[in-house]
């Protein structure tokens, strides 16, 4: 491999991993606090992307930057509604109920999106500041890829700071261990749960906006990303943000190099890898054994 193709592949790996990380981190964050797998998590990602296409079409040039702020917040509000109206009533029920409820939400959101935005493929233009390439080691590196990687890095640092350096993160971790004592010591536990779920939805929405200039925004992207996010979360271990980061990188490597070396087997490798990890460590690389 030449130097330039190494750089190209490296950027490809990091870009893929960044998008996946933002979605998977939200999924795993929600699992960590609420102990449920949200199958509709991919819908938040899709709505982030669709909302961005609508806003960008209305606002023109500055549309992307406005979308980057507004759309994740709108999606977070959707998350609040889902948590308050549906999930909150199901926390005490078995995991099948929660899986089915979020599966039902995936179907509902998919059809509403179809009503609102139709079947056609949509896209938005990247803002001019992020267009173009710059030369590095003989390779042409897209500026937008660096932007995606940068956003994911900020998300990673932000989540780390929130979870391990703030009072709020301390409370979120306490929710898992002992909600009763936490509630008795004056914390509003339901509010924390709603907040965590909204934050997870917001991250998915943010990821959706960020990929909108690079990928086709179309029906089916919700189910596609959720499977990828499941794989990341399961390889890394559900509930672990570090695991989500490592899992995203692993998938990025396998997907990018697989596409270079054996294109027809690339998609198969990822699932085989997930099954291998589950066979050896059924709770993922960084997860805890299920209680």
């Amino acid at each position: 491999m030449s130097e330039s193709s190494i750089i190209t592949n490296l950027i490809g790996i990091l870009t893929t991993a960044s998008t996946l990380f933002m979605v998977a981190a939200g999924l795993t964050l929600v699992f960590g606090a609420l102990r449920l797998i949200n199958i509709a998590h991919g819908s938040f990602y899709m709505y982030g992307a669709y909302l961005a296409t609508t806003l960008a079409a209305r606002l023109g040039g500055a549309g992307f930057w406005v979308s980057l702020v507004i759309c994740p917040l709108v999606v977070a509000a959707m998350g609040v509604l889902v948590e308050v109206l549906v999930l909150r009533r199901l926390y005490r029920r078995e995991h099948l109920t929660q899986l089915l409820a979020t599966f039902a939400l995936l179907l509902i959101f998919a059809d509403i999106a179809l009503r609102l935005w139709g079947k056609s493929v949509r896209s938005i233009k990247a803002p001019s500041a992020l267009n173009g390439h710059f030369q590095f080691g003989g390779a042409a590196v897209p500026v937008y890829d660096l932007f995606v990687i940068g956003v994911a890095a900020l998300v990673a640092i932000g989540l780390w700071a929130l979870m391990s350096r703030s009072k709020l993160g301390w409370r979120v971790r306490a929710v898992v261990d002992d909600p009763e004592v936490l509630a008795a010591s004056g914390t509003n536990v339901p509010l924390i749960l709603t907040g965590v779920f909204a934050l997870g939805a917001m991250l998915a929405g943010l990821s959706g906006v960020v990929i909108a200039p690079e990928q086709a925004v179309q029906p089916g992207m919700d189910a596609e990303i959720i499977v990828a996010a499941f794989i990341v979360a399961v390889i890394g271990g559900l509930g672990s943000i570090v695991g989500a980061a490592i899992g995203s990188l692993i998938i990025g490597v396998v997907e990018t190099l697989g596409a270079v070396w054996t294109p027809s087997w690339a998609s198969t490798f990822i699932y085989a890898l997930m099954i291998l990890v589950l066979a050896i460590r059924p709770w993922g690389l960084f997860g805890e054994t299920e209680r």
């Binding site: 995991h95 499977v227 399961v234 559900l238 198969t268 997930m274 099954i275 589950l278």
Partner: peptide, 16 residues
């Protein structure tokens, strides 16, 4: 795997 992990690993087999 158990419970959710079982659900997710069977999902992976389906995708595979």
């Amino acid at each position: 795997a158990r419970r959710l992990y079982f659900a997710l690993s069977t999902l992976a087999f389906s995708e595979l």
